[in-house]
Computed example of a mutant assay.
Amino acid sequence: MAHKVFIDGAAGTTGLEIAERLQGRSEFTLIALDDTRRKDTGARREALNEADIAILCLPDDAAREAVALIDPAGGTRVIDASSAHRTMGGWCYGFPELVGQDRVAEARRISNPGCYPTGFLALVAPLVRAGLLPADWPYTVNAVSGYSGGGKALIERFETEGAPAFRAYGYDLAHKHLPEMKAHAGLDHDVIFAPAVASAYRGMVVEVPLHLGAMQGDPTADALRDALREFYQGSAVVSVADGGAVGELTLEPNAAPSDAMELYVFGNAGGWHARLVARLDNLGKGASGAAVQSLNLLCGLPEIAGLRLPSA
């Protein structure tokens, strides 16, 4: 029997991309509301409680409202793509590579990771767990994303005449991703997060610069790379590049959708400095692809079914 899925917020960028990944898959039946009913509370309540899995592609407050509309005694399981529940007790963090596939598969409430935290956590969390990087280090994150992650208003701004080529923001040092990055990496301090948007529709580069020579234990770039490669061994989604020289990493204006993530560790000749880098699609592993990955696990299906991967 097909699993009934309701995407609340299906008209948004994330919802549309989730629906595209589910198109033609006989394992799922999508519950849809037409334009006249998709903002009607009664219709949404009915759809949310009819679904086996509800995927919330909503602003934070609307996501909390949607969860409140679900009968807790019912059978609906939830994947929330907002940031409303990412550090809340009782919710499983939807990053199977970090928390374990079994935990995601057994969860009733899953919070989809943020796009920037996905890159940061993929790099740092395994290395902190392994004791190769200190939990009390003052980490910095420099990142640039395609403009699609900013929603309809930012998409319109970048696609109109006179659009900016680059937009840096987060100068209040209070970005909503900070608690998520700290909590799920097991850090003692908030990171300093420097996000930006470039004039590419999709894609993301997340970088964590490290002064290895100032850390106890004398970690090396090679050791960090080897540990990441071991951690993600066998993953069809996350890959770790070898230590060869890379001249540049780019975001292409018309890049194809991808649900993969590439990790890099660059080190200088003296071994004092390293740059940890993640490259991913902010709409793929950073949003819709991650939600579909968790959906597959919830339904007992192959984890990468329907994902857009190089080898899939």
Rank of each mutant, 00 (worst) to 15 (best):
A122P: 05
L58T: 04
A81I: 07
I70P: 04
S148P: 10
W137N: 13
V104T: 02
Y93W: 13
A54I: 05
S148T: 07
A223D: 15
D102I: 10
H3S: 15
V197D: 03
L301S: 00
P59W: 09
Y93L: 01
E27R: 05
S235R: 09
G75M: 05
H184Y: 06
T13F: 10
S294H: 11
G306T: 06
G286Y: 00
P117Q: 03
R21N: 05
Y171D: 13
C115M: 14
F231S: 03
V292K: 06
P134W: 06
L280V: 06
M215I: 11
F95Y: 01
M261K: 00
D188W: 12
F120A: 00
F166I: 12
D60G: 13
I110K: 03
G243L: 06
V246E: 12
R25L: 14
P138N: 04
L224K: 12
P72Y: 02
G151S: 04
T220H: 08
M204T: 09
R308S: 13
G146E: 03
G234T: 11
G94E: 01
K285M: 13
L56R: 02
M204G: 12
H211G: 13
L56M: 09
S235M: 12
L276M: 09
V277E: 04
T250R: 15
F266W: 05
L307R: 01
Y171H: 14
L173R: 07
L16N: 15
L280I: 06
R275T: 11
V124L: 02
R129L: 10
A153M: 10
G306F: 03
T140C: 12
V246L: 14
L210V: 12
E262F: 10
C57I: 01
V128W: 08
G306D: 04
A130G: 07
R44M: 00
W137I: 06
L30G: 09
A241W: 09
R25G: 08
S258K: 05
A19F: 06
D242S: 01
H177M: 14
K182W: 00
G243W: 03
T118P: 09
L228I: 08
A223Q: 15
V208F: 04
H175N: 11
R77Y: 03
K152F: 08
N268P: 03
R38N: 10
W137E: 09
A194I: 15
P179H: 07
